[in-house]
Every structure is written in C-alpha cells, then in structure tokens.
Amino acid sequence: MTNIDTLRTEQNTGSVGRGRWPVIGIVAGVTAVIATLVTDLHPADSPKTYTADIVDQVSSGKAQASIIAGYITVALLLVLAAAWRRHVEPRALTSTAARVVPLGLTAAAGALSLGYGWKGAMAIYNGGNEDGAFDKTGLYVLFVLNDFGSFIGYLGVSVAAGAVAWMALRERLISRWIGVVSVIVVLPVIVTVAAFGLPGFPGVVSGLWLVITFAGLTFGRSTINR
C-alpha cells in the first residue's frame, strides 16, 4: 500500500493521530462568553421592576458587538459539530452519546441564531440606523426577548455536555476529569430549571465549558483525539 493509500485509509477510518480540531471549540467558548456575558444588555444598575424606560439605558454598541460575536459563535458551533462527526464518531462507533454531542451543538446554533438576532434588532432600532422605527413599547418587547434570548439557546450545549460526561465516566472515551467538569456544568442547569423554571443558566456556563472541555481534548490524552 502506498503512502497516499495509507493516508486515505486513515482519513476514512478516523485513525489519524492527535488533531487540533478541538481548538475550534476553545474559540467558540471564548466568543460565546463575549457574546453572552461581556456584552449582556442588562444595565449595571438594573431596577427590581422593569418598565419601558429601561430601553434608554441599553447600549446599541453592546448589542451590535453581541450579534457579531454571537453569529461567529453560531458558525463555530456548526463547524465544531462537523469536525466532531468527522474525527470522533469513527473512533466511537458503538457510542450513542458520541452522536448526541454534534446534535446538541447544532441545535444550539439554530436557537442562538434567533437569540443573537434579537440583539441585532435592538442595535438597529435603539440608536442604530433605524432609530425611531419603534416606540418605547416596541423596543421594550425586544428588550424582554433579549432578557434570556441569547442564554436559552445554549441548552443544546448543555445536552452535549451531558453526553460528554457519559462518554468520560461510563465509556472512558474521554478523560474522566472532563466528565467531572461536564457534570458540574450540567447539574446547575437541571436544578435551576427544576426548582425555579429558570431557562437561561445554560448561557452562563456553556462558554466556559467549551473552553475547558476542548482545551482538555486538544492538549490531553482522551482516546477520541490520540
């Protein structure tokens, strides 16, 4: 067999050595933190009860920065899902959890397209190019949508984290410490939803989970990326 044939066989079977594809997940985590937490539209001195006047305190610049970073995150999540399917699934042929991960990432990308899109709308209509197109009541509707809009969409990432935890702790395809981190991330999501009906906690922890998990896959010794 020629070297070219060997390389093609390795590529088709997923038996190539350690890859750098998980770096995509690290970058996605960084942009997720920027898009969701750093550029959060809630004013620093938010009142206990919101009224339509709150829109006067919303920064259109932050909203625009958020949609830019957010849409980059969406694109990266889709690329990461594709890379996972190419590099991981051939090495985990009997693992259902391995197939759940890209599904969760793809679901998150779809939902976040809407979440960050609403931030873009706030940038346009509240001090942007189409300022004045909506009155305060209309802008307040957008503000309410943005309250959890870019947080809820990360539920798919939480599902992916749960699948990674299973792969690490049950199937031993990923380093166990990554599984522990994933459990620590998923449990508060379950608790806050069950106890309070709070839908946005996935957006608080998902960016950090992406950074830690995929840094671990990039530089660690997990079976799926040796």
Score class of each variant (00 low, 15 high):
188 P>A: 04
188 P>W: 13
47 P>Q: 06
31 T>G: 15
135 D>N: 12
126 N>S: 11
163 A>F: 03
46 S>C: 14
112 L>D: 02
214 F>V: 08
93 L>M: 00
128 G>L: 01
200 G>T: 03
104 G>R: 00
49 T>E: 04
115 G>I: 05
163 A>N: 03
58 V>P: 08
191 V>D: 11
182 S>R: 07
208 L>R: 13
23 V>S: 09
131 D>R: 15
81 A>I: 08
59 S>A: 09
2 T>C: 07
222 S>D: 03
128 G>E: 11
200 G>V: 03
218 T>W: 13
218 T>P: 00
103 L>Y: 05
119 K>L: 11
129 N>V: 06
108 A>K: 04
183 V>P: 10
144 V>W: 03
25 G>R: 02
196 F>N: 14
144 V>A: 10
82 A>L: 08
200 G>A: 09
145 L>T: 07
91 R>V: 03
95 S>V: 08
144 V>S: 04
207 G>S: 04
182 S>L: 06
206 S>F: 03
225 N>T: 15
141 V>N: 08
104 G>W: 00
91 R>T: 08
89 E>I: 15
200 G>E: 01
206 S>I: 04
142 L>K: 10
22 P>W: 09
70 G>L: 07
169 L>C: 07
101 V>F: 10
185 V>S: 14
9 T>C: 13
10 E>T: 02
168 A>M: 05
2 T>S: 15
190 I>Q: 11
51 T>F: 01
126 N>C: 03
169 L>D: 08
219 F>T: 07
31 T>Q: 06
18 R>W: 04
96 T>N: 09
17 G>Q: 10
141 V>Q: 07
57 Q>N: 00
116 Y>C: 00
69 A>M: 07
42 H>I: 09
103 L>V: 14
82 A>E: 07
21 W>C: 14
106 T>K: 08
186 V>S: 05
127 G>D: 14
105 L>G: 09
203 G>R: 09
187 L>K: 07
100 V>G: 15
43 P>Y: 05
178 I>N: 04
153 G>F: 13
193 V>H: 13
104 G>N: 07
70 G>Q: 08
113 S>Q: 12
44 A>D: 06
61 G>F: 09
111 A>N: 08
67 I>N: 04
83 A>K: 04
207 G>R: 12
91 R>A: 06
